[in-house]
Amino acid sequence: MEQNVGVGIIVGLVVGSTTYVYNSEDLKQGQKVFLYLCVLFPPLQWLLIFVFLGYNNYLKNNSAEKVEERKVEQHKNKIDITIQNLYDLKKKGILTDVEYNQKVEKLEAEKTEQEIKNSIEYKQLKSLLDLGVLTKEEFESKSKLLSNMSENKIDIIEVSKIQNSETYLNDIKNTTKPFEEKSLVGTYIINDKKYFYSYNNILTIEDYSGKSLNCKWYTIDKNSLKLIIDSKEVIYKNIQFTDKGFTFHCRNVKYNADKIN
Rank of each mutant, 00 (worst) to 15 (best):
K103N: 06
L86P: 01
L89C: 10
N174Q: 14
E180C: 02
N191F: 04
G93M: 01
L59M: 13
E108S: 06
Y197E: 00
I120F: 14
K193N: 08
K144Q: 07
L125W: 00
K78R: 14
L169H: 12
V72A: 04
E166W: 05
M149H: 15
N101G: 03
D155G: 10
L107G: 02
L59G: 02
V98I: 12
N62S: 00
K194S: 01
G132Q: 05
R70Q: 05
Q102V: 13
E105W: 07
Y199V: 08
R70C: 00
K173Q: 11
N191I: 12
K111Q: 12
L95F: 10
L131R: 09
N62K: 00
G93F: 03
E140I: 05
E166Q: 12
A109N: 15
Y100H: 05
N191P: 05
E113R: 08
Q84C: 11
D192H: 05
E105F: 10
K193L: 03
I162G: 08
K173D: 09
I190C: 03
I172A: 09
T167E: 14
K153I: 10
K76L: 14
K161A: 02
S160E: 14
E115Y: 01
Y197F: 13
E158N: 10
L134Q: 12
V185T: 06
D192N: 14
K60P: 06
Y87L: 11
F139N: 04
D192A: 07
I162K: 11
K71I: 05
K193M: 06
E166Y: 10
E108W: 07
V104N: 01
L59F: 14
L129P: 03
Y188E: 01
Y195G: 01
Q102R: 15
I79E: 10
K123M: 01
K123H: 04
I189L: 11
T112F: 07
E166S: 13
A109R: 15
E138V: 05
S150E: 15
K144D: 09
S143Y: 01
N164V: 04
E108C: 06
K161E: 10
Q102H: 09
T135M: 03
K161G: 01
Q163L: 04
E115L: 12
K106H: 02
F179N: 12
Q124M: 14
D192S: 11
Y199G: 00
K161R: 09
S150N: 11
I120L: 11
N101V: 02
E151I: 15
D192C: 04
Y197K: 01
I190S: 07
S63N: 05
N57A: 10
N61V: 00
S165G: 01
T135E: 03
E181I: 06
